[in-house]
Amino acid sequence: MIAQPPIMMKSGSTIRQKVPIPVLDGYVTGMFYSFYGLPDGKEHFLVELGPKNTAKAPLVRLHSECMTGDVFGSQRCDCGPQLRESLFRINSEGGYLLYLRQEGRGIGLYSKLDAYHLQGQGMDTYEANRQLSFDDDLRDYSAAAAMLKALDVMQIRLLSNNPDKAAQLTANGITVTERVQTGTYQSAHNRGYLQAKVRRAQHTINNLK
């Protein structure tokens, strides 16, 4: 399909294309948006789900790509369950899921697998990143803010346990009226990973054992 001409909005980024796609085995249909002019030039996309609700700000999830968790159901993280929960909750309440192409907190898939190898030797996820000469978290959410602005969405309720997402969106001109926690998806394989996120990055995760 040839992309439609860009739809100009109040942002430097513009809508490139939008197309409805049935997801979750056809349980819901999301409107998928691609964009021109995102700050980092990556192919991030946004999925609009659920009813329009003018009574309160839309529910929004910034979900960083996780090939191992989202596609293969890896138990080393909680990404796959969080993605599925987000799709259902946003479809129920109305809002947007932004799928951001920044694998492994921004270090890329191959380096994430290297970090997994180091974690198998006893390092936590942040120690492994540092051993590979990366910062704890390289993710930049300015593209997420640009995507929301392209849809003229300036106020949101953020579905996240990560305070850095709210802080970066706020710094980029998006008002976060509420931060809504996701569920806790703990297993024997990801307990240390979740504990490290709480200890080192102040994630809000309830009922960790």
Rank of each mutant, 00 (worst) to 15 (best):
V153T: 13
M154R: 15
K209R: 12
Q168F: 00
D140R: 03
V23N: 05
S64Q: 03
I205F: 06
P81W: 12
N53G: 02
M8T: 11
G73F: 14
T184Y: 05
P20L: 08
G183M: 08
Q75S: 12
L138D: 13
D70G: 01
Q119D: 08
S111K: 15
K209N: 13
M154D: 15
D70S: 03
Y110R: 06
C79D: 13
S34D: 10
M67Y: 12
A201W: 02
Q155A: 11
H63Y: 00
Q17P: 00
I15Q: 04
L83R: 13
A201P: 00
Y27C: 14
L138N: 13
K52R: 14
T177C: 03
Y193W: 09
D25F: 05
D152M: 09
S92T: 14
V47E: 06
C77A: 04
S34R: 09
P6R: 12
R157A: 01
T14I: 01
G80Q: 07
T170H: 10
R130C: 06
A145Y: 09
L87H: 05
S187E: 10
G12M: 07
R105C: 02
G95L: 06
T182M: 05
P5D: 09
V180S: 02
K10C: 06
R191W: 03
N129S: 14
G183Y: 08
N91S: 14
R89N: 06
D152E: 15
L24D: 08
S160M: 03
Q202W: 03
T182F: 01
R179Y: 02
M123Y: 15
H44W: 07
G183V: 00
V23K: 10
V176Q: 02
L208E: 11
L194D: 04
I15G: 01
S86T: 08
P22C: 09
Y185N: 01
A145D: 06
M154L: 15
M154K: 15
A3S: 11
E93K: 14
S11L: 02
T29E: 13
Y141E: 14
G192P: 02
Q181T: 05
Y33F: 14
M147W: 11
F45Q: 04
G104Q: 05
K10H: 12
L113V: 13
V60F: 02
S64F: 00
Q4I: 11
L49P: 03
G95Q: 06
T170E: 15
L49D: 02
R105P: 01
T125K: 02
K197Q: 09
K52P: 03
M123G: 04
G37P: 01
N162F: 01
D137I: 05
Y116A: 02
L159W: 03
G37S: 11
G122N: 07
M154T: 15
A144I: 03
G50T: 05
L100Q: 12
H189P: 01
Y193H: 06
